[in-house]
Design a protein around this nucleic acid. Structure first.
Length: 396
DNA sequence: ATTCCACAGGAAACAGTGGTCC
DNA sequence: GGACCACTGTTTCCTGTGGAAT
């Protein structure tokens, strides 16, 4: 075990490059978000009608991931609650992530939980109620207590994609029903600009009373964000401006996602520490970039269901990558493993899910009289696939 | 211009599970 | 304890599609 002891010894005695790792994680939200003054002001102005006792406009925030939407909302809401408390106004702000609470009922349940309804007689249980009944109980609670509720639904597009806009419809209309007091405002946060098209026109008009678009950060903006964070996170001399420029350039070119850029910086720092290097250099950043991609793919494949793994394996084994060919190989794999194969319809769906996750790429090709099909290709390095599937799985 | 292939993918239905309500 | 509800994963059924072959 001497090599293991050696690792521990070096970790214990080695010099840390980071003085505050926390500031390079998603949990850290700075007091004021750089480059988001305009958006913050718009949001604050919209919410300020709470102080006049009237309902704030419903609001939609659009922007790609890592553009600071959620952070801006959290910041402003925190200020709002504090300011309202000084004036004895009770504002409740349930923040629901519709990607985690991925059904209409789960969203209602989460809202009920954060609002404290479940400490009352008429609870909204984990299951068993109809959606209508759950909505009614929430509205009754708000009305009875004359509450100001600002409902924040993050990733609102995934809720609408999976469940339609019924829940949104009930809440945008709720104020007409609550005649005895209390009100609800909705803030929807979405990664997709086209999400509005999927809404019922009545929901669309009432939900998008105001809209704010968060543009992706430019390379220069990312550079300044990373510079700020690195001052908080790193010990003196542990990172150079050139390395920060590189991280900003790599992230800005690819996605403009501040969260990923900060992750890149953190992982590069961790790799440099493991390397016992006195500072982060270019090779750590490049390695961090590779690691991020690989880890992501590994996790997805490792956690996939058995049938999804069979499909992935079938794609790697297929010569032409046609749907028919892949399905045939998949069926054979199932037969070998004494599993009943899923239908082709379901396999098509699995392939499309893998496509969305970026594990495979598909191109629809038409072979004329020989039909239309998809050309399916694995986009993840084959070694990563085999590593994720495991030798036992491949050899069985 | 029409036919035909090999699918893609939407919609509805179903089975099984885990829960509440009355 | 039966009626009812939601959710997930799946199957079944069906319509639509691009372009080579006829």
């Amino acid at each position: 075990m001497t090599d293991i002891d050696d690792i521990f010894e070096r970790a214990a005695t080695g010099k840390s490059l980071l003085k505050n790792r926390q500031t390079l994680t998603i949990d850290y939200v700075p007091e004021k978000l750089p480059f988001r003054d305009q958006e913050s002001r718009t949001l604050a102005q919209s919410l300020s009608s709470v102080f006049k006792g009237t309902r704030p406009s419903n609001l939609l925030l659009f922007g790609k991931p890592g553009t600071g939407k959620t952070a801006v909302v959290k910041n402003i809401v925190e200020h709002l609650i504090a300011k309202a408390k000084e004036r004895n106004i009770e504002v409740i702000v349930p923040i629901i992530n519709a990607k985690t609470a991925n059904t209409a009922y789960k969203v209602l349940y989460e809202i009920a939980e954060t609002m404290g309804i479940n400490r009352e007689d008429k609870k909204v249980h984990f299951t068993g109620l109809s959606i209508g009944e759950a909505t009614d109980r929430i509205l009754q609670f708000i009305q009875k207590r004359n509450l100001h509720v600002i409902m924040v639904i993050d990733e609102i597009d995934s809720l609408v994609d999976k469940n339609g806009d019924n829940v949104l419809y009930s809440f945008t209309r709720a104020n007409e029903r609550m005649t005895k007091g209390g009100f609800i405002s909705l803030i929807g946060i979405s990664n997709s600009l086209t999400f509005k098209d999927k809404l019922d026109p009545r929901v669309r008009s009432s939900l998008s009373e105001e809209e704010t678009v968060f543009n992706p950060y430019t390379v220069e903006q990312l550079r300044q964000i990373l510079l700020e964070r690195s001052k908080l996170a790193f010990n003196d001399g542990a990172i150079s401006e050139a390395i920060i420029n590189l991280c900003a350039a790599m992230s800005g070119r690819e996605h403009g996602d501040a969260r990923k850029a900060i992750d890149l910086l953190r992982i590069a720092a961790e790799l440099a520490e493991r390397d016992h290097s006195s500072s982060v250099d270019e090779k750590h950043v490049r390695a961090a970039q590779e690691k991020m991609e690989k880890d992501n793919n590994l996790e997805v494949i490792k956690n996939a269901t058995t049938h999804t793994k069979f499909v992935i394996l079938a794609i790697t084994k297929s010569k032409n990558g046609n749907t028919g060919d892949v399905y045939e190989i998949y069926s054979a794999l199932c037969k070998d493993a004494e599993e009943t194969p899923l239908t082709q319809r379901r396999v098509t769906q699995i392939i499309s899910e893998l496509d969305q996750l970026g594990i495979v790429s598909t191109d629809v090709i038409s072979q004329g009289r020989y039909g239309r099909s998809q050309k399916i290709k694995i986009t993840v390095p084959i070694n990563t696939v085999y590593e994720a599937l495991g030798k036992d799985f491949i050899d069985r």
